[in-house]
Design a protein around this nucleic acid. Sequence first.
DNA 1: GTCTATATCATGATAGAC
DNA 2: GTCTATCATGATATAGAC
Lengths: 240, 240
Amino acid sequence: MVTTTVAEPRQQADTRERILDAAEELFTLYGFDGTSTRMITSRARVNLASVNYHFGSKEALIQEVFRRRLTWLNHERLRVLDELEREAGGAPVKPHLIVEAFFGVALRMAADEQHGGHTFMRLLGRTYSEPSEFIRTFLAEEYESVVERFKAALFKALPDVPREEILWRFHFMLGAMAYAISGIDALKLLTDCQLDENDPGALARRLMPFLIGGLRAPLPEPAAKPEKAVKADKKPRQAD
Amino acid sequence: MVTTTVAEPRQQADTRERILDAAEELFTLYGFDGTSTRMITSRARVNLASVNYHFGSKEALIQEVFRRRLTWLNHERLRVLDELEREAGGAPVKPHLIVEAFFGVALRMAADEQHGGHTFMRLLGRTYSEPSEFIRTFLAEEYESVVERFKAALFKALPDVPREEILWRFHFMLGAMAYAISGIDALKLLTDCQLDENDPGALARRLMPFLIGGLRAPLPEPAAKPEKAVKADKKPRQAD
DNA sequence: GTCTATATCATGATAGAC
DNA sequence: GTCTATCATGATATAGAC
């Protein structure tokens, strides 16, 4: 083992990552406004000034916390979709495979501590409904290309479903997943019995059928134009 | 019109409500930590000290913002469920009616400006995944009795579905709705085409089929005990 | 009940020695 | 790159005149 004259040889290279790790955890636990830079540097065991030195500002740090995970996540999503479309060879990819690609990758990431795991996915899920303007703008940019690709794939896969309806259901699916991941604590609101939080695959096995069931549910009646509201019970047609 | 000697006759009685209204709006826009009491009193056009005078603290104000709406919402939910069970006369209530009672009431409330409307429901939706401990605790207490009743109704309506599975799907449905309401802005993440946000009934018409479809989706394969993870494609059985 | 003034504290950010 | 010391700001909450 070599002893160097430098006090902490790996410290300087690690500082950035240590800050990012600490910030990720604390943002998840307490939100952005609820987490001060002092809390972050204290947990990361680095100096208070180092956040501004390495990232410039708290906002920039927040963006970097997301960027380092989202780049990998969305790249992976596109890789899976690419492969599906290659296999389909011009034919539409089956809807459940598209959903599996988009949400399955995220759920697997939530089970992979190497890529932020549970902590980051909880943070991401909560952030979809974040009030802060700059975060939503930033997220939208990060997601733009991926969302475009998946939207197109779903449109192609469900040619008989109105595109507007597909978008809404994509939206609902996002919500169900965001919640499923970020709100496992909130589930205690629903139950006292212990759910299988330990098995990371369990959530996917449970959530996927729900998402597919929702996506392929019968279509709603189109809104009645002339009258105020249609009172008649919905006799929905099939989604596909 | 009678002119009194008092400077602003209705002011004193209104102060409380004015504060609550302003707080509700601002919490929705900027979150709890992102909203200062100064912002609230300024928007409500009341004195800075009046928040502490009327509510004691910011935390107590937050609780009161929720309490004044949730009492009505959950009472209404129970009223509808009571009526459904009375009509059923001992038989199980159909699942889609139970879902309609729980979520439909909330969606109708979101369209009713008298009871907080869109603003409050966005706030509520976001708050399900709120990191703050005291808020989640408070919400859990407010919801406890309602959730128990609806859980029981669903268990009775779906006797062949494992209770754990029902709870998860209830959870997923909550997420889809929370998101659908609170995240209409986030939808711009998905689309540039203008969605029909103006028609309050439209969301319900779109969301309900999705929720029912998810609730009644085929059940997942039970987790494989011996092996690490089951690789085989899911060949799900029917939910009911 | 209302309002002004203020106490007390935590925040994000930075300057400048090392 | 790191660290100490500090600034300017804005937060919640309260004291006390009216």
